[in-house]
Design a protein around this nucleic acid. Structure first.
Length: 444
RNA sequence: GGACCCUUAGCCAAGUGGUAAGGCACGGGACUGCAACUCCCUCACCGCCGGUUCAAAUCCGACAGGGUCCUCCA
């Protein structure tokens, strides 16, 4: 399996540090609002990565944080007169609900900044003690000049960064690139550190959580490409300073989602919230339709197209499923022997092995759909249809595309047979009545 | 001002040196009690110009258009 490593900017063969295990961390949301569909992209994608790794037999330890201490949370808390913790807790639940509706697994480790204050403060103190950070009037800054490779991940020269800097020069910093580890404050949630009453900068939490939970270099660190600089660069710098080892072996960054001409972002206000999208699985399908490193453009026209494609997948899947279930010929334990199906299964895995090329994986899925539709109206091919169903189950499970199909009850089976009989009898009024019931139940 | 990325049919999209996968839409057939679903067929000189090469969508350079980062943002 190959993974594109953003750190080296190249495709690399994937070898986990511990055989059979993968430790991965994905930067999670700052919880002060509902997430939009652009926020959902990394969540859906890395959930898919996890699913595929698990199907390959890895025991995956998946961690993603919640930033629940932040300026924007404070601001919103003041604006709406709601305590910060209440606010963040509300949006944490909303987040989990949203991603669950996109069929993302939620049974992963979810550290929160507020629960990590002691280790964060200890971590910062260690950096100060070792000369990698310095305190000025209650604030603490990281001394970037101590890190030799600073800028390697995001491919930047330190000199370019300084000359191109549009940031107003902070007189307290030794170097404009130095970033805040601890900020003295009198607003919002405050914590007691040796330097001042304040709160931590954004860049320390992830690296502390990784250090605490995994205690070593992890296999995969993921996030949106917008986080490469400075966030991930700063994580790397801090880990280098603390342990003299890398945070992660493979860095993975997904491309951004653009809304028409510009990126979708809370600060620009051009957002579509996940909770407001009715077609949740079509959204997941859409998010996986393009390779994760490529940018993705959202327009109504494009999304409509993926709704159509999703419905096609859903229809075909259900047709196969219910045909087998209605005829009581479903064999969940079947082994795939058909060469054509085997080939598409292989194509699917090759695609996923190629840096999680979900676009090509979907092509293999579509080939199975076609095979299913060609064979669904033929008779006496239950074995083939069972193999097709098996393949569909595998592919949709890896991609996390959940289709609502359940084994049908005796009562519904009875209605089905009555419908068929009525059709044979050319009693179309009666047949249509039964058909309506079956369609409402999603069986047809 | 600095750094970087993208540009493949009406639309989405794969492809990273050997003469363009797949899907959606359109059009033409077929199936069907009526629907829905479905099937078959048709549909591209890869932004533009120049270069390297026996050979380029794929490598190099210029240009045009679009985008991202350098500041919070997945």
């Amino acid at each position: 399996m190959q993974i594109y490593n953003s750190y080296t900017d190249s495709l690399e063969e994937f070898h986990s540090i511990h055989p059979g295990k993968v430790n991965m961390y994905v930067c999670g949301p700052t919880v002060y609002n509902y997430i939009h569909i652009g926020n959902a992209r990394p969540v859906v994608f890395f959930d898919t990565v996890r699913r595929y790794l698990e199907h390959k037999g890895y025991a995956v330890r998946f961690v993603s944080n919640f930033t629940d201490v932040d300026d924007k949370i404070i601001q919103k808390s003041l604006d709406e007169n709601i305590p910060e913790l209440e606010l963040s807790s509300f949006y944490i639940h909303a987040f989990l609900q949203d991603i669950e509706s996109l069929n993302c697994k939620t049974d992963y480790t979810q550290p929160k900044v507020t629960e990590y204050m002691d280790p964060i403060i200890k971590y910062i103190k260690n950096l100060v003690d070792n000369g990698y950070a310095y305190e000025v009037d209650g604030d603490v800054y990281f001394r970037v000049s101590k890190i030799q490779d600073y800028g390697k991940l995001s491919n930047r020269e330190v000199d370019d960064l300084i000359s191109g800097s549009r940031v107003e020069i902070n007189e307290q910093k030794e170097n404009p690139l130095d970033f805040t580890l601890w900020k003295k404050t009198d607003q919002g949630l405050k914590f007691d550190a040796p330097y001042s009453l304040g709160r931590p900068g954004w860049h320390t939490e992830c690296v502390v959580m990784i250090d605490d939970i995994f205690g070593e270099e992890i296999d995969i660190h993921g996030g949106g490409s917008g986080l490469k600089f400075p966030h991930h660069e700063n994580e790397i710098a801090q880990a280098e300073a603390t342990h003299h080892h890398h945070v992660a072996r493979y860095w993975m960054h997904n491309g951004l989602l653009n809304f028409k001409d510009t990126k979708m972002s809370k600060s620009l206000g051009n957002v579509i919230l996940v909770k407001d999208v009715l077609e949740k699985m079509a959204l997941r399908y859409y998010l996986l339709s393009t390779h994760y490193r490529a940018p993705l453009v959202f327009t109504d026209e494009v999304f409509q197209m993926y709704i159509t494609e999703w419905e096609k997948l859903e229809n075909t899947y259900k047709s196969v499923f219910y045909k087998l279930d209605l005829s009581e010929k479903m064999i969940p334990t079947i082994e795939i022997k058909n060469p054509e199906i085997k080939q598409e299964m292989n194509h699917f895995d090759i695609a996923m092995d190629s840096d999680f090329n979900t676009a090509n994986a979907i092509t293999a899925l579509q080939a199975i759909l076609k095979l299913a539709n060609i064979n669904i109206r033929k008779n006496n091919n239950e074995i083939l249809l069972n193999e097709i169903l098996k393949a569909l189950n595998y592919m949709t499970d890896v991609l996390g595309l959940k289709i609502d199909a359940n084994r049908i009850s005796e009562a519904d089976r009875d209605i089905y047979h009555k419908w068929q009989q009525a059709r044979k009898d050319k009693n179309y009024d009666l047949a249509d009545t039964y058909r309506k019931v079956l369609m409402e139940k999603g069986i047809l």
